[in-house]
Design a protein around this nucleic acid. Structure first.
Length: 411
RNA sequence: GCGAUCGUAGCUCAGCUGGUUAGAGCAUCGGUUUGUGGUACCGAGGGUCGGGGGUUCAAGUCCCCUCGAUCGCCCCA
């Protein structure tokens, strides 16, 4: 392994590829303002317990994917594998409880030690939206509307909102027990993967990709049989709210989420365009999370989206193209060229300067940059006070007085 | 962590069953044209063939290990 090799699963992006990520974040920031979500910044590192307790000790994320290390003071520190837990920690430690219900949005990198593949990296970037301290179904609806509008503003077609409820804690544990019993009864018929899931996380067998699991899954008890009337009522309010807001959704009774903190509403926006990484945005209600790190009972909902995954689905942002490239000729022209360049740029016109090679090279650079005009500035022009403005598309060229260049380029 | 495919120049790739100094296109740089781009022509630089070991008279080509990439499983955004 040579020193110039990047760390596995990290990315170094140039030009359009980097612009794509920036475009996604810019759209997120625009929509987030429309919905009244405050921007927050939280640390990249937290005490390990922040993630271990909230996400769940037995989940894969915590048990084998976190970047955890002891710092020089001997404290166990973890690079965040997601943004939600850190935001909730800040909600408690920074006194943000006074703003409840608090709507916040964040964007940043997260880290998981996984095998990289399409749309999956070890250092990746997430968009995150949370409403903390709101038990009302209106919060779920608002959050989903935000997600829906973001995808539309990004011009992403063909995602489907899959929606489910995991019920309240009683519902969830009753359902879980029933599933456990059902699957254990049919254990011999299950795939190896699902046999392993049996004790660890029976809910996950529901969305197994192994065909041999299908029949057993189909005959499994559904959440609806266990919903308490409160839980059913809550879910009903969420769905009628979505319908009222004109947000299309599909019921996915077998949708479960991997992290332990989810309750009630659970959802994913999925696509078939990203291979195995079909979930582009996902989240749900996590009423128990804040309590799990020592805070008061605090109802909350949120979602996270993969910036890279969204970036792969948007149209290519155009490159930045200068309107004009200044071509100085000879030492004497450099100062005047710098002055003109600064002047043009300060007037909001994208401009560049070709300062290497002979004139042929310099014009060639102007052409390659995609400029509309080249502005030629040599001894002759310095004396006359008029530069040569060449239209690179038509080839036509004319003299323009130095002090009329900005005006001419604008027209 | 498991499986499959792959790794030759900055990029995209060629290199037949192992056989002389490893090739092309694009890109870069120089020239034809030292004040006129887009097209054309000529030329140059750039490679420990991912890395290590082995088989062989001979390895880019075969075998093993390793690192990496891609896709899938697991899991998740």
């Amino acid at each position: 392994m040579t020193p110039v090799q990047p760390v596995r699963g990290t990315q170094s992006l140039l030009g359009e590829d980097a612009d794509r990520l920036a475009t996604v974040v810019a759209a997120f920031d625009r929509v987030r303002r429309l919905y009244g979500f405050k921007r927050v910044e939280v640390p990249t590192i937290e005490h390990t317990a922040v993630f271990a307790r909230t996400i769940g000790e037995t989940t894969d994320v915590v048990s084998k994917e976190m970047y955890t290390f002891d710092d020089r003071g001997g404290e166990s520190i973890t690079l965040r594998p997601e943004l939600t837990a850190g935001i909730c920690r800040a909600y408690l430690s920074e006194g943000w409880q006074q703003y409840a219900p608090l709507k916040v949005a964040a964007a940043g990198s997260a880290f998981r030690y996984e095998r990289p593949q399409k749309g999956r990296f070890r250092e990746f970037h997430q968009l995150d939206a949370e409403i903390i301290g709101a038990a009302e179904p209106q919060a779920d609806v608002e959050l989903l509307a935000f997600a829906d509008q973001l995808l539309k503003e990004l011009g992403i077609e063909g995602t489907i909102l899959k929606l489910n409820t995991l019920g309240d804690p009683e519902t969830r544990s009753a359902w879980r027990d029933a599933l456990h019993e059902h699957f254990r009864g049919h254990a011999p018929a299950l795939s190896e993967d699902s046999k392993n899931r049996l004790e660890r996380n029976p809910l996950r067998i529901l969305d197994s990709k192994a065909h041999q699991d299908w029949p057993v899954v189909d005959s499994a008890p559904t959440i609806d049989e266990f919903l308490t009337s409160e839980a059913a009522d809550f879910f009903g309010k969420v769905t009628t709210g979505l319908d009222a807001a004109g947000i299309k959704w599909e019921r996915a009774p077998r949708l479960v989420r991997g992290l332990d903190y989810y309750r009630h509403t659970a959802f994913e926006f999925i696509t078939d365009r990203l291979g195995a990484q079909g979930t582009v945005l996902g989240g749900g209600r996590y009423d128990g999370l804040v309590e799990s790190i020592g805070g008061p009972h605090t109802p909350a909902v949120g979602w996270a989206a993969g910036i890279e995954r969204l970036a792969m689905m948007i149209g290519a942002p155009g490159p930045e193209v200068p309107v004009v490239v200044i071509v100085p000729l000879g030492e004497g022209a450099n100062a005047a060229a710098q002055r003109l360049l600064a002047d043009v740029r300060r007037n909001g016109i994208a401009a560049d300067m070709a300062y290497r090679g002979n004139m042929k090279k310099r014009l060639s650079r102007a052409n390659d940059a995609g400029a509309s005009y080249a502005l030629i500035l040599g001894d002759v022009e310095l004396e006359s006070g008029e530069a040569q403005l060449k239209n690179l598309a038509t080839g036509e060229q004319r003299s323009v007085a130095f002090d009329r260049i900005v005006e001419t380029l604008r027209s």
